[in-house]
Simulated scan of single mutants.
Amino acid sequence: MNLSKITFSLFFLFWFGFTSAQDDLFKELNSDSIVKKEIATAAFKGLQVCTMQSTKLASKGEWYFLVAHRFGDLTEGFGNFFGFDNALTKIGGLYGVTNWLTLGLSRHTLNKNYELAAKYKFANQEVNGFPVTIVGYNTMDINSNLSEDEFPYLKISNRFAFSTQLPISRKFSNAFSMELNPIYIRKNLYEPRFEKADNFLLALGGRHKISKRISINAEYAFRLNAKETSFYHNPVTVGMDIETGGHVFQLVFSNSQPMNDVSYFTNATGITDGKGIYFGFNLYRVF
């Protein structure tokens, strides 16, 4: 057999093999055996579990208006009208820049604090694939209440505090979801006797749906490197989600009155001798 016949034979075999493989690939792509990735949705209906952030983001183009209150110590009774006399308020807004990025701005009565926030999604839980939803969350606090008259050596950087969080959630069923959240808090101004500049926590949250529009939620954060002299406690909150049309209404009971992430996770006064229970709510309205 001469060289030209060998070359032709090899070309024929290559071409036949390539076209056969191509036909098999097209058949496979067009067959029902290819399953599209299905995203597990609504692990949490609210943007927060209770006070801690959930893995839910705003959809692209959505505006959320937020109003939240934490009333004073409920156990003080009629003396402070069951907490109504010294409530803390949070008011703010969120915008879904994309389906994977939400930006927020809020103002808190505590320390006249402004909180900038960014939430961004790394991965979605898939029904028959990736097991969890992973989200990043960052905040920057600006304390506008600090006065140079009280702190003569006050620097601009002293007004700032930061949180970095990595909420990881899994929807186990239509009724039950859980979230794990490693947290790092950085304070540029703190009380050295009771606090540290760098704080590490590990938080756990969960949601159990009890009806079509109502769920019971709970969360707890363990402070990994708290000072032994600290009188602050690990924050714990229980609550209820109520879905009402265009918004989710959350009722909560907590041992921490602050609502900005930095203070909530590091300055919970705790429940001592039956005191230190704070009732409140979160109200989100989407546009």
Rank of each mutant, 00 (worst) to 15 (best):
A221W: 00
R213T: 12
A203L: 11
E219T: 12
A203R: 02
N225V: 15
S230T: 14
L189P: 06
N199C: 10
E219A: 03
E195N: 10
V238F: 13
K196H: 07
L204A: 14
F200H: 05
L202R: 03
A226C: 09
A218F: 14
Y232C: 01
I210C: 08
A226H: 07
A197S: 07
F200P: 00
R213P: 03
L201E: 11
T237S: 14
G205M: 06
N181W: 00
H208V: 14
P192G: 05
E228P: 12
K187L: 06
S211P: 06
F200R: 02
L204R: 01
Y184H: 00
I216H: 04
K227S: 13
P192R: 05
L189N: 05
R213E: 12
H208W: 08
A226M: 13
S215G: 08
Y184C: 05
L224G: 03
E179I: 15
A218E: 06
L204T: 14
K209Y: 10
G205S: 04
E191V: 15
K212Y: 05
N234Y: 08
A197L: 06
F222D: 11
L189V: 07
G205E: 00
N234A: 04
R186N: 09
L202G: 07
I185Q: 00
F222N: 08
N188A: 05
L189W: 08
V238H: 02
E219L: 01
R186I: 15
A226P: 03
E228M: 11
K187Y: 01
F222Y: 15
S215I: 13
N225P: 13
E219C: 00
K212S: 07
S211I: 09
S215Y: 09
V238D: 04
N199T: 04
Y232H: 09
A218T: 02
R207M: 11
P192Y: 07
I214Y: 05
L189G: 04
S215T: 13
L180K: 01
I185A: 04
L204P: 00
I185N: 01
H233K: 09
K187F: 06
S215A: 15
H208Y: 12
D198G: 13
P192I: 09
R213C: 12
K227C: 10
G205Q: 08
G205N: 10
G205K: 01
E195K: 03
F194K: 07
A221C: 10
T229F: 09
E195F: 12
E219M: 01
F194R: 02
G206A: 14
H233R: 06
E228A: 13
A221H: 00
H233Q: 11
R193M: 15
N217Q: 06
A203I: 04
V238Y: 05
D198P: 07
G205R: 02
A221K: 00
L204W: 11
